[in-house]
Amino acid sequence: MNILIGTILIWGAAFWAVRHLHRTAPEARPELYRRAGETFLFMLPRLAVGLIGAGFLAALLPEAFVQRWLSAQSGLSGILLATGFGVLTPGGPFVAFAIGASALKAGAGAGALVAYVTSWSLVSMVRTLSYEVPLMGRRFTLLRVLISLPAPILLGLFASLAQ
């Protein structure tokens, strides 16, 4: 259902943009369809392979395992471990929140939780591989991931101080 609503919304926006282009620069239309077609063909195999790989990765990392380790470690080692788990935790809009919530109940600290959610948000391997590399290219993805890596550790440390 979510996918359907999203699809309709984006098609609406795409039609609006194409109509606008048609009115303001009708001569650019062949170029539009050529570029869009090329990009779509470029992404198609990457996205399919990325999603399948993401599914396999998800099956290899049991949630109970992550939850147990998140609550067992504390301090800096807990934050580093949480950051690593965040990278490995598969996508979806809420998976890491659910795991984080059960880890919290089992005794995980605010630092580990913030590090985990931040790392999953910023550098989740699955979203990065299945969407970002195909859509944004390798250079953008690599630079963004590299520069983002310190953030979960720092935010985790700040959060454990604030607690």
Binding site: G6, T7, A14, L32, A36, M43, L51
Partner: peptide, 24 residues
């Protein structure tokens, strides 16, 4: 594979939107 197929229309619209935006 089913998820990828289900996402294709959405991705196609996203690509069309982004390409058109870049020109508009």
């Amino acid at each position: 594979l089913g998820l990828a197929a289900l996402l294709m229309p959405k991705i196609a619209a996203g690509v069309l939107l982004a390409t058109a935006l870049a020109l508009v």
